[in-house]
Design a protein around this nucleic acid. Structure first.
Lengths: 240, 240
DNA sequence: AAGTGGTCTAGACCACTCT
DNA sequence: GAGTGGTCTAGACCACTTG
């Protein structure tokens, strides 16, 4: 890839896009070339290189380490989901021990709404129960496009962090998600799995995750015991 | 204010802090001096000025307008609360018309938990009911430190955007918030105000907002009809 | 000591906005 | 045309990490 010095697109932006593509293609596994190397290769000044890299750092694609170099960021998803605390964090904050149990996994047809929104009809389902100190708290049901699901199936999902698997083992980059938090009453099965009466309130979440190209990666629908769980969100005016 | 050229703190960071303080003190109401002016005043290069300004743009304090200048950002809070969509947005997205009614306002003692967490015992309460197409959806109860509340009281709160008032009229900068979303059952009063049975589920949110110095600005506790409302959150790996 | 990113300078030209 | 931010260059020195 080369830069087009005649293009109206700024050089730092062209360079940023080239680097991003190369990174997503896995051309750099850990460390990317130094600023001075990139400077020579692309025949631009160091500021231009630094401007491109800074943008990718802000996007969470790269991380800089002073004196060592610039590295592809494999920050676990938990962190960039960021503002919204994860189940494990919340449970630990309450002073309890989180654990997980696989209920079922396999090919299955997804709910109609999902099929439409995601554009895949055949899907792979993983259903897990999450505990805090051995009390069932949440019922997670995750749908994946079949090809992704079959890859996931090669691993032991009983205790695995699926997002880590997706990113590090399958090379799938999670990028954006839209999550809905609502409240409802559980179905009979859900109530019995969670050990609560059917008349109780539960928190319901739905989430779509897409990769950088906008392809669907996951649809999740989960139920949480409302008497023992709440979502925490950190809102900030700060962006950096 | 001057820069300390001997200090180990980078010049761009010193400059950033000086500008931020001046902005929060209201020394610049709209436009800040141009990059070339700042360059002369502080006797630094333009890149250093630009680095300081860029940081403040990322933090949401400043906005640049090509060919015009750099301006203090008065973006409404709705935008930086950002990932979490606001009531009005969600209602409009559903194709309904949001409205609001003031139920009560005045001095009141805040709940014990609040008193402790915020460190103010006397507080000012504002309670409002939010509608979608004239159907009551949410019950908002907001607590302010007394001095802020008495200032707010000078305005007509029946339809006002309180966060706009705080920022533009009272000069209070909202900075960070921690929000909790849970599910519960409504009290008798809450149920009747929302026109739902006591056995129904409602969404409960609690939120603390602080200013840049960490002082408490607001505590809010709200109830939402679960059958007609859900929270939407946009999660993204992108940071810029 | 060599290599990396972090900071900073001085100066140039471009694109946009306003008058 | 004058002023603004946007882009870009070439070169310098510093601070940190590693052999």
């Amino acid at each position: 890839m080369k830069l087009d010095f005649e293009s109206p697109v700024p050089l730092h932006e062209q360079l940023k896009n080239i680097l991003k593509k190369e990174i997503l293609n896995g051309e750099y596994k850990e460390k990317i070339p130094s600023e001075r190397e990139l400077m020579e290769w692309f025949a631009v000044s160091r500021s231009t290189v630094r401007q491109a890299i800074s943008a990718l750092v802000r996007e969470g694609v790269l991380e800089k380490k002073h004196g060592k170099g610039t590295f592809v960021s494999y920050r676990p998803v938990e962190e960039w989901l960021g503002n919204l605390s994860t189940f494990n964090e919340i449970i630990k904050k309450m002073g309890m021990k989180p654990s997980i149990k696989l209920l079922q996994q396999g090919k299955a047809s997804a709910p109609k709404e999902v099929t439409h929104a995601l554009g895949f009809s055949e899907s792979y389902v993983i259903e897990r129960l999450r505990y805090a100190d051995n009390i069932p708290i949440a019922l997670e049901k995750q749908y994946y496009p079949l090809e992704i699901g079959l890859e996931l199936a090669k691993f032991n999902l009983n205790n695995a962090a699926i997002y880590d698997l997706l990113e590090t083992s399958l090379g799938i980059n999670l990028w954006e998600a839209e999550q809905v938090i609502a409240s409802t009453k559980p179905s009979k099965e859900e109530a019995s799995l969670l050990g609560i009466p059917e008349s109780a309130c539960v928190l319901l979440t739905e989430r779509f995750i897409t990769d950088p190209e906008g392809n669907p990666v996951e649809y999740e629908r989960s139920i949480y015991r409302a008497d023992m769980y709440a979502f925490r969100i950190r809102l900030s005016r700060k962006r950096g």
